[in-house]
Design a protein around this nucleic acid. Structure first.
Length: 353
DNA sequence: AACACCTCCAACCGCAGTAAT
DNA sequence: GATTACTGCGGTTGGAGGTGT
């Protein structure tokens, strides 16, 4: 039903707008207002299609457009709105005065999405990558860290998992004192601990211990689900091991989508400063807890462990799971794949493969 | 200086929804 | 109800400018 594209019409200009064209468009709209975009270019003396004129006006020439960098507050707002609305850029833009849908979409794709991925957060679901969470549990269990288990996992793990595993092994091999389970599961969420930071920082700044019972409880739960997985990997279910963890999340997720919840990612807010500065970045502050509130008992319980370990379907960019080695990897996907190889090199080195 | 590669964003494209006929 | 005209939306692209080698 859609109209034919502008390119079908002969003699119409494409590409970047000149200052002269901009001025013609502005002058015309100031005199006659906008609308009737199809007729506008003819009346305004522009060799452009109406669509192009509308886009130029709404995305660039409109007087109420706010130019310049996004503030942290705007960034936080975008993340919150995206969590509720998804890729409804126009809906998001309507709540950010002066920003266009195109601008927000670009900013999401070039900045925020990448930032979330680096933090180990799925930019589509806004939840921590549960597969990474599980790997931390697997690696933390000394009795399960043996060759058969890891070889079995090799075919299931996606590159992000392997990347994390490689980081952990690198840490372990460089510093025997550094206790991986403590670093991963005590007193602050794993994705904030490890993923946003370079490997060497994660290794050299292990957090202090914490006796918070909630964290200890999670340790037990993670251990329990790991053991269940170990005994029956394909039929693993969260149902039996996480009955209490997501109680609050069910309530929160049942909220109307019209209301925008305050950032609260679950049951375990960060309590301590870890001898360092507390996170004040509002962006990071949204992801300080352990379990995302949009993960419910229902949807966790229905996940099989196998599906968690394979490439997540929620991931917007399919993960490259090939075993090709990229020594000079230029893209993030390539680096992930490269890290997968490094993991198995490390496993080989310590005699597990 | 020259080249390769990367990032960013303005602009394009195709499709869907809706109003008008 | 079918068709046409128009507008809006979201995904994608291409090129300018920046950075690294």
């Amino acid at each position: 039903m859609g109209k034919s594209p502008c390119s079908d019409k002969n003699g119409l200009k494409k590409g970047p707008w000149t200052a002269e064209e901009d001025q013609k468009l502005i002058d015309y709209i100031q005199k006659h207002g906008h609308g009737r975009w199809r007729l506008l270019p003819k009346h305004a003396g522009l060799k452009r299609c109406g669509k192009s004129c509308r886009l130029r006006w709404t995305n660039y020439l409109r007087p109420d457009i706010k130019r310049g960098k996004f503030s942290l507050e705007e960034e936080e707002t975008i993340i919150q709105l995206h969590r509720v609305l998804g890729n409804k850029w126009s809906a998001i833009a309507s709540r950010l005065p002066g920003r266009t849908d195109n601008e927000i979409k670009n900013y999401w794709n070039t900045h925020i999405k990448r930032k979330l991925l680096r933090m180990g957060i799925d930019p589509v679901t806004h939840s921590p990558r549960l597969d990474l969470l599980e790997l931390s549990s697997i690696l933390s269990s000394s009795q399960l860290l043996n060759a058969p288990n890891l070889i079995g996992l090799g075919s299931l793990l996606n590159p992000d998992l392997l990347n994390l595993a490689n980081t952990l092994f690198s840490c372990q091999s460089r510093n025997q004192e550094f206790n991986i389970p403590q670093n991963l599961e005590q007193n602050r969420p794993f994705q904030q601990n490890l993923l946003p930071y370079p490997v060497n920082q994660a290794c050299t700044n292990p957090p202090a211990g914490d006796s918070n019972p909630e964290y200890l409880n999670q340790n037990q739960l993670l251990q329990a689900n790991l053991e269940q997985f170990s005994s029956n990997p394909t039929n693993f279910s969260w149902q039996n091991v996480l009955p209490n963890l997501c109680q609050d999340n069910v309530e929160q997720f049942s909220m109307s989508k019209e209301s925008i919840p305050t950032p609260n990612y679950g049951c375990c807010q960060q309590e301590t400063d870890h001898n360092q500065s507390r996170i004040h970045d509002p962006f990071l502050s949204q992801y300080q807890s352990f379990v995302p509130n949009n993960i419910t008992c229902g949807n966790i319980a229905n996940m099989s462990f196998g599906s968690l370990l394979s490439t997540p379907s929620s991931s917007s960019t399919p993960l490259n799971s090939s075993c090709t080695t990229y020594v000079n990897a230029s893209t993030e996907d390539e680096r992930d794949s490269y890290c997968s190889n490094m993991l198995f090199d490390n496993l080989d080195a310590i005699g597990l493969v």
